[in-house]
Design a protein around this nucleic acid. Structure first.
Lengths: 346, 346
DNA sequence: GGGCGCTATGTTTACGTAAACATCACATTG
DNA sequence: CAATGTGATGTTTACGTAAACATAGCGCCC
């Protein structure tokens, strides 16, 4: 599987063209080539042209390793995450890479196959070898805890989707706020209480959403129905929906993400329950497809772009100040009202 | 926006600990530190221990720039893509990064904000500066054409989702085969012809699917209905669906991706058309949610994992042989039959 | 017209690592 | 016991780039 331990030999293939080669062809010193390559002033037009055409002729390409060695930086951010199969991770990654690009940084992915301790440990061990200036970690915090020992020192880190604000700089969606708004929206419509289809236990985000759901219900003096667990997938939402359809007093469901809501809608439909007439449903994420569900889904909109932007700015700030930061930054959510919620049946 | 042109100054922050520092503390030569760091034999246990504890005390982390300079490789692949908002790109990227990791390579993202020529040109210019050994390009081929001039020379490239097999090594899903199967499935059910909701014009994949749809219909001696264009989004599928619902003889639709099919289903439902009783629908991609659509969607399954695997293996092979390859490798698809297709109404 | 400053270019050096080569201590052997 | 080999460690060098410093040519001013 992993041949990274295979003996590494310096590649003795035809050596790449270097500044010296270009300099020789152009009849100048390599320093002049360097000046042209970096757009420095003080090179007369004629010389510049000679160098440029020599570069073109040889297919010169600056060696980023040597550059990085000289500069002490790669202009690259490393992103550690478990999976690209959840919307949140993908959209966050997209925002990170876009934002990083705007700051002149590339983004290197360090996928961790499974969120097991061994895998995480291995990933952090390999981290030190990566051509990366700083890291952004998108993962459940208890796994980060387990691996903390091997987190390379002297490296700036920012964490998403975590509660480790006491030890790292954390940026996260305001899970609690969003969940509260979702639940209160349903209560305001007149529902006596709200059921919750939660994400998997090991997810920090799922936990936060479930906690806020319960707190909001208690705060409003409502009964707290038993918690139903899914695993983020539409399929798990479908299974949960089949069960919830049997609960006669279940008139409102807050689902921890939109995919599960999709499955839930299908189950309710199959069971002959109409949404929103018989049951109201609120999702979380506001994926682009949510507007095309049957019916269009009322859901909590997450601003992934903002999360990504703050992550990148945070880690670059730490990098430039050469000092770590702590504390949690929450990105607000907003409720998007569509057609899946209504007052309870009379 | 882009501050990559801002004057770069070598970071004069507290210099990182180097082998020399470790060597000094451990009372050995830096070469011995190197030997320990790389697990070479021929270092006596006691010395090794001293070095290791000196490393730990100073928080030593090998400098990957110097390493890369020495070895001539970064063990990193660059992936150029336009967007992470389409399922295909995301899933392909996921497969690439996983497969690369198994070969001991990291994956660097080079997002191109918009598929305009300027953007692409800029991206390719920046490529040369990236700490990357080879590239995988996921993009529409005509844009690659426009930018070809500035594609860095002496670099191995593999392309996904393209028809540039005559100039590059290309790996792609068998778009034509998959589309043919989808259309024939509908014809076999007894539909007189099949309508097509295509992806955007500038997409190569969309073009291939549309071409195959038309060819299959002609091949079967069917009338070819006017082509309907979407933009991959569920919203565009919805708009197209509203129009198609007005076509009395439209009993079967082949949709170029699953998201558009979702929107189409909503539109048909709103217009009082039952799927599959009145209209049959086939999608493309087989996203995880397709099974939870109303009704569960019959669709063409793409093996993104295989595409990613082949891309990585192809580019690594080129890298190790130091010679480019050409030609196209097609990854087969398969039809997943669910509940959205049936014989036409009597 | 000689010194001064400015511009264009060349030379030296350092970045951190690791291969290649050099040395040294000690054990083995004839 | 001296010659020889062997294993552990140190020294030199090169990777490609770019900052810092050096130099050479030239116009300008008093």
């Amino acid at each position: 599987m992993d041949d990274s331990s295979v003996a590494r030999q310096p590649k003795r293939q035809a050596r790449r063209v270097s500044m010296a080669d270009v300099a020789r062809l152009a009849g100048v010193s390599s320093q002049t080539v360097s000046r042209v390559s970096n757009g420095h002033p003080g090179v007369v037009m004629e010389t510049r042209q000679q160098v440029l055409s020599a570069m073109a002729e040889l297919g010169y390409r600056p060696n980023s390793a040597a550059r990085a060695l000289k500069w002490g930086e790669f202009r690259t951010l490393g992103v550690i995450l478990f999976t690209l199969s959840t919307t949140g991770n993908v959209r966050t990654l997209e925002a990170i890479s876009t934002s990083a690009a705007q700051h002149g940084y590339a983004t290197t992915l360090l996928p961790v196959a499974a969120p097991t301790q061994d895998e995480v440990h291995g990933a952090f061990t390999r981290l030190g070898e990566l051509a990366v200036d700083a890291f952004i970690v998108i993962m459940e915090v208890h796994l980060l805890d387990a691996a903390t020992v091997s987190l390379p020192p002297n490296v700036q880190v920012v964490v998403a989707d975590s509660n480790a604000g006491d030890r790292y700089s954390v940026v996260d969606t305001d899970q609690a706020g969003g969940s509260g708004v979702a639940v209160r929206h349903l209560l305001d419509l007149g529902h006596r209480t709200v059921w919750h289809l939660a994400g998997p236990e090991e997810s920090f985000a799922a936990q936060r959403r479930a906690d806020a759901w319960e707190a909001t219900l208690l705060d409003a003096g409502c009964e707290v129905p038993p918690l139903v667990r899914g695993d983020w997938s539409a399929e798990s939402g479908y299974r949960a929906g089949l069960a919830l359809a049997e609960e006669p007093d279940c008139t409102a469901v807050f689902t921890a993400n939109d995919q599960m809501a999709l499955g839930l809608l299908r189950a309710l439909h199959e069971k002959g329950k109409s949404v929103p007439r018989d049951v109201s449903v609120v999702g979380f994420d506001d994926i682009p497809e949510a507007n095309s569900f049957l019916p269009p889904l009322t859901t909590v909109h997450q601003d992934f772009a903002e999360v990504g932007r703050l992550l990148v700015e945070g880690v670059l700030r730490q990098l430039h100040n050469d000092s770590p930061e702590r504390g949690t930054t929450l990105v607000p959510t907003r409720l998007v009202e569509r057609a899946s919620t209504a007052p309870p049946p009379a």
